[in-house]
């Protein structure tokens, strides 16, 4: 499953970022989004096209097409 499969306020652990490109992955890493990090889905915005997630107390907004590439496990 990936981030888009989560429900609001679900907490999950990131399993893999395999499908994201390298540069974007580094950017995610800067914000603390990486394997084994805990992520909370706070909100789905703009008709579920944007996902607001929380990692280490930071709120981050990303697009659906990128959220799909972040595989998680509940």
């Amino acid at each position: 499953m990936n981030i888009t499969d989560l429900k609001r306020e679900d907490i999950a652990q990131i399993v893999s970022l395999k499908n994201t490109d390298k540069r974007f992955m580094e950017r995610l890493m800067d914000l603390g989004i990486y394997e084994s990090a805990k992520v909370t889905l706070l909100n789905k915005l703009a008709y579920s096209n944007l996902y607001l997630i929380e990692v280490d107390d930071i709120e981050i907004c990303l697009r659906k097409e990128d959220a799909v590439n972040i595989e998680v496990r509940k």
Partner: peptide
């Protein structure tokens, strides 16, 4: 076309 935004409180 990547959008990655840190949302401040």
């Amino acid at each position: 076309s990547k959008f990655l935004l840190e949302v401040p409180p």
